[in-house]
Amino acid sequence: MHLIACPWCGPRDEAEFSYGGEAHILRPEQPDALDDAAFANYLFMRGNPKGVHAERWVHTVGCRRWFNALRSTVTHEITAIYPMGTPRPDRAP
């Protein structure tokens, strides 16, 4: 059971949250302009890193707000929590 620091509510049990998959997958501005391969890439293909993973969480039974987190898929340590729409804090912009 992770302990996740909701930016609005503070540290809460993982059971209060839902996982939203990999972060920074931008919906194409014009989906129609994509060929099938490119659209499938947007829809289905996700990274599966061993180590730090940028991912989305939502505080489902709390404030219902979405946010991003950096979490290690090896140790489950959460090293950063940051707003949707902002770049990964561990990468140079």
């Binding site: 839902s18 939203g20 919906r27 989305r56 939502v58 489902t60 219902r64 707000r65 979405w66 949707m84 729409g85």
Partner: peptide, 13 residues
């Protein structure tokens, strides 16, 4: 409800 919130907050903030 969660679906609408997700689109609003993550794609159309």
């Amino acid at each position: 409800m969660a679906w609408l919130e997700e689109w609003l907050q993550t794609e159309r903030p």
